[in-house]
Each structure stands twice: as structure tokens, then as C-alpha cells.
Simulated scan of single mutants.
Amino acid sequence: MHGPAQAGWLLVALCAATGSYCLLRMRSRIEEQRRAAGGEALMGFGMALMALPAAVLAPPRWVWLAYAAVFGAAALRALWAARRHRHRHHRHDRHHRHHLHHLVGACAMVYMAVAMAATPGAHAGHGGGGTPALTGALLLYFAGYVLWSGARLLPVPTLAAAEGGGGGGPITGWADRTELAMACRLSMGIAMIAMLLTL
């Protein structure tokens, strides 16, 4: 009985810590970095709340529907940003891919929230009523994303330096550390896999 609860609290701590760092990243001087960090902070805190053990918090059905509405709006925003960025830049641009990843993540949150709303007493990690085929497709996507981002998690210049900001040398402020941002995205990908596995 203690194992699942402890795993749930670890997941909550991981997602909350990731969301907190994303809030710090919103202080970046780079507009694109701030926008991405805002979406990732929402995702991190949303996942932390969703992963709370059912013994601590068992939300009514309307809460899950509100979750679906919030992340549905986040998905529409990510779709709009991806379309706008594709028209302005090359469709394989790094920022365009990142908007598409935000879109998939927000859709996954909507899917999990709807599954929990449809199953009385369901909660993250406690057997929601998801569709096996869709759950499997999302698991494959996030597993691939985790492997890809893990392989890319090597010492890299800060995003500020890559964007040409900051004048002479690279900026190493906490809000602009590209490797930490990548580690946060990797952590959220792993957390998403854990939540989908228990759906």
C-alpha cells in the first residue's frame, strides 16, 4: 500500500520542482524562452496536482472537466503558435517543433483528465478509464521524446548565447541555462510516461 503512495509523492515533487524552475525561466530576457517556460510551468504544476495520491485529494468530476478545459485552451494556444511560427520560419525550426511538443503534451493532459472524469473515483495512478490504443500511442511518443532529449542532454551553450543576445560572452543566469531547461523537459516526459502507464 505504501509503494504507490510514495511513488505518487515522488511524482508530485518532481513535477512541482520542474514547474517552479519553469517559473524562474520566465524571467529570461528572451521572449521565446519566456513563452515556452510559461507553458511548461502550467504543465508541471498541472501534472503535480493530477498526481496527488487519491487518499490526499479525490476531486469531483467537475474538477477533471475544468482540467480538460484549461489544457484544451493550452493545446489551442500551442497549435496557434506552431502555425504562426511555421509561416514565419522554416517548418522544421526548433521552436516550431517545441510548439508541436507542447501541443501533444496538452492534448495528453486533456485525455487523462477526460478519462478520469469518465471513471468515478479515478485518479492519476489509480486506474482511470483510458483508451488502450491512444494510451499506447502517447506512451510511444513520450518514450521516444525522453530518449531523444536524453541523448541531447550534453553541455551546450546557453539559449541566450545561441540567440545572439548578451553581447560578449554566454549568459549563465539560471533563467537561461539551456541544459537545465532540457533536463526539465526530460523530467516532464518521464513523469508523463509514469502517469500514462497507470491510466
Rank of each mutant, 00 (worst) to 15 (best):
Y111T: 01
A122Y: 03
R152I: 02
L139K: 07
L139D: 08
A58D: 11
H102I: 00
L154R: 01
A133H: 12
V110L: 10
Y111K: 06
L140F: 10
T135N: 10
P155N: 05
L52R: 06
A151G: 15
G38T: 10
A51Q: 04
H95V: 12
V12Q: 06
L103K: 02
A13Y: 00
P157Y: 00
L147V: 15
L103I: 00
G173M: 10
A51P: 08
H99A: 00
A194C: 04
A13H: 10
G46L: 05
G125F: 04
L24H: 10
M26A: 06
P4C: 02
L154V: 06
C15L: 09
A82F: 02
L196F: 07
H87G: 15
C107W: 13
A191M: 00
P60H: 07
L76M: 11
L23S: 07
M50D: 09
V146G: 08
L138Y: 00
T18S: 10
A66W: 09
A151Q: 11
L159K: 11
R97C: 11
G46V: 07
E31L: 15
G44E: 12
A5Y: 09
I190R: 07
L147C: 14
R97Y: 02
L159T: 13
A5M: 12
F45K: 01
V56K: 12
G128C: 13
Y145C: 06
H101I: 08
T131K: 03
S28Y: 01
W64R: 05
M1D: 14
G169C: 11
A55C: 08
A54I: 00
P4W: 04
G144K: 06
T158D: 02
G125A: 03
L139M: 11
A122S: 05
A13F: 10
V156E: 14
M43L: 13
A191T: 05
G121C: 04
A41N: 04
G46M: 01
V156H: 15
P59N: 03
A194G: 05
A175V: 07
A69N: 08
L139R: 11
L153E: 00
H123K: 05
A106R: 10
H126W: 05
T198V: 11
A151T: 08
A16L: 13
L180Q: 00
G105A: 15
G167P: 13
R35M: 14
V110P: 06
D176L: 04
P120R: 09
P157M: 00
P170S: 12
L186W: 06
M188C: 08
S187P: 03
E32M: 00
T158N: 03
A36Q: 01
Y21P: 04
L100V: 07
G165Y: 12
T18G: 15
R29A: 15
G129Q: 05
L65T: 05
L154F: 02
A75H: 06
L65V: 12
A137N: 03
A151I: 06
F142Y: 03
M192E: 04
T172W: 03
A108P: 12
R94D: 14
